[in-house]
Design a protein around this nucleic acid. Sequence first.
DNA 1: TACAATTCCTATCACAGTAGTATGTTTTTA
DNA 2: TAAAAACATACTACTGTGATAGGAATTGTA
Lengths: 148, 148
Amino acid sequence: MRLTARSEYGLLALVEIAAGGDSPRSARELSERWEIPAKFLEQLLAALKRAGVVRSVRGARGGYVLASPAAEISVLAVVEALEGPIAPSMCARESALCAQSAHCAAGAVWGRVSDAVRDVLSSATLADLAGDQRRLDAVAPVTKEPAQ
Amino acid sequence: MRLTARSEYGLLALVEIAAGGDSPRSARELSERWEIPAKFLEQLLAALKRAGVVRSVRGARGGYVLASPAAEISVLAVVEALEGPIAPSMCARESALCAQSAHCAAGAVWGRVSDAVRDVLSSATLADLAGDQRRLDAVAPVTKEPAQ
DNA sequence: TACAATTCCTATCACAGTAGTATGTTTTTA
DNA sequence: TAAAAACATACTACTGTGATAGGAATTGTA
């Protein structure tokens, strides 16, 4: 079970898309605001498209839009699209002994951990975060040259 | 934030130590029961010793014992000894924008995730797991040749 | 119709971490 | 004295992460 920069970048981009209007946002635009390597972000957006989280609009003035209402996209969906399923990578079926989890008291803890993570991630939607973000932007807008 | 085989192996070994008596258990013994590569386990036990989770007894008939009562060792302590601190690896101070977390709505989610993980891990102790394990062993003892 | 903006596709790469192996040495008990 | 054990150190194969590179296909707009 791991959370990497893929989730961080992807979520930042999606919150930005959700906080904006209905017009598509280009990868370049998004990458500039959050200082995400543009070509890397392209790959993440491709993964999010494959997972059905976003739709793309090709050509000039194109970009990405959410495939569903922001309130219906959980952070869990985003993370799983980018990192694979949130599940205990350990204590899996491969291990002869842990196959019969009746033998392994520790296994229960790993299960509880991934349940807890899924719980947190599925309880926040892009709509929630977009709202928060709009509020933050209003109070402390991001500038190209930070006030220092 | 990651959980790897280090935690899995280490916790299995410690539960075994806790479920046993007061006499030291050798790395070899532990590695055989749970099919953990012996030399790898040695390294994990060394890390656990450095972190003050176990004490070692050198020489023949030596091995490892818990450094404190099992009820006072949380799974969190074990995991952090083996994997490093459980904290959101992302949205850290390094990033110019996320330094002022006032700009980043997504960051709050990562914080909640690691809080949830820490919560689960710190709510289970080696004494709990050792109890579970003893019960499991009584019902379905681990055999070298699984019944298949 | 040309051009620029954009997604899309594929390949490559450096680096770090994981998981594990190897080869001893020191210490201690029996 | 011999065996069992921790301790120390180095090495290796492999994988995933976080990119970069170069172009091809698509599409709005001047």
